[in-house]
Design a protein around this nucleic acid. Structure first.
Lengths: 207, 207
DNA sequence: GATCAACCTGAGTTCAGTTCAATTCGGTGA
DNA sequence: TCACCGAATTGAACTGAACTCAGGTTGATC
């Protein structure tokens, strides 16, 4: 059932990847609304209209970036937790994985969480809507990832019983809230932030 | 120093308040980007161009809504905590106050937190920039509100010593993360959400 | 070296946001 | 009572960034 969108296979002279990378830089640093679509084209070294060979619209590109980031987040969660049986350790591993990211991925996170509201309403065009629907599915997947982790801990008696859905959403909300203000150039290194959040989440869930 | 922007005094036939109310409804339900500025005008019952008598631009209106909401949040925090000496009780009171809001205020929260990124970059026009600067000040004020609460608890020995700035930002992030997904029509009543978050924050801070 | 699809372009269209010049409204003071 | 003034409003025109279209290149494959 959970069918991934097939990434258009890269013809050897495809600039899709380059466009996505440039768009992440622009949208992440300047904001989606404020960056001109034509600026992205310039950076890649093609005319504005060539963009429409790869993406149906500026928004379609944004939605693609968001979906890819969600896919990455989900995969990383799975990878980090699959071999960890102890729930508290799994929680810690998941959080450490969440903050083990490159600068480029930080931008993707920022873009994703600054435009979550895009995922609620339907889109007019086909391909945009496809990306949106897929992204929404992934959001729910990620939410379930965290909830399941809590449910497991609760049923094993390691975590006190609480509304796992609500608590999961809270943990997730706490973790991703960092991406709204964190800047790699800022005073606090990400590792330090991660450690504080890790502690906070464990107290929140396991106390 | 902290000089509030003087609200343009309402001439008796001013439609400013009506425009703000309509804009909150539109921006909150349909999203800022997707609602046409002219739709707001329609709702109020005036021509599109009349809007420019009150606001310099669509964005200027948005920034005003955001500033007003921030002002409200700060005032409410102060009011809820000023008479409470016990830090844990003050924390609880602040959180309860944060979730003691009308449906209209829920929309304002949603709008505010969906467009926080607007506050980082400077604006081109004067009045927009004034609102932006004022809003940023208020953001820092609110952040300091929470941080000070934690600092007080820590120095009184009630809360374990931790990075109060980071922890404050986290608490705040957790609390406001709710506004991204909460809908008054949803299955979980706000009171229940508030209670869970209240517990979570106390564990996070006081354990 | 013909063919075909992927890739690209310049010129032109659209549309929401915005500007402008001109007009109406309603309270105030002579 | 009426002239006046600023607040409030308007229709018509402008702007600029997203997007469309009709066609042109490129280069891998046969």
């Amino acid at each position: 059932m959970a069918t991934r969108i097939v990434e258009p296979e890269a013809g050897p002279r495809s600039k899709r990847a380059a466009i996505l990378a440039a768009a992440v830089d622009c949208f992440g640093e300047t904001s989606f609304e404020a960056t001109k679509w034509s600026t992205v084209a310039e950076r890649v070294g093609i005319g504005q209209t060539a963009l429409y060979h790869y993406f149906e619209s500026k928004t379609h590109c944004l939605l693609t970036i968001m979906r890819l980031e969600l896919q990455r987040s989900h995969d990383k969660f799975t990878e980090a937790t699959e071999d960890v049986t102890d729930p508290t350790e799994a929680l810690r591993a998941a959080i450490r994985a969440a903050y083990d990211v490159s600068d480029h991925e930080v931008l993707q996170m920022r873009i994703l969480h600054n435009h979550m509201d895009l995922l609620s309403g339907p889109r007019k065009s086909k391909r945009e809507e496809a990306e949106r629907v897929e992204a929404r599915k992934l959001v729910q997947l990620v939410e379930r990832d965290w909830m399941n982790l809590l449910v497991r801990g609760m049923s094993m008696g390691v975590f006190p019983l609480r509304d796992a859905q609500l608590l999961g959403a809270s943990v997730l909300g706490l973790i991703v809230s960092v991406w709204r203000w964190y800047r790699p150039s800022g005073p606090t290194p990400l590792s330090e932030i991660g450690e504080l959040i890790e502690g906070a989440c464990v107290r929140m869930v396991a106390t």
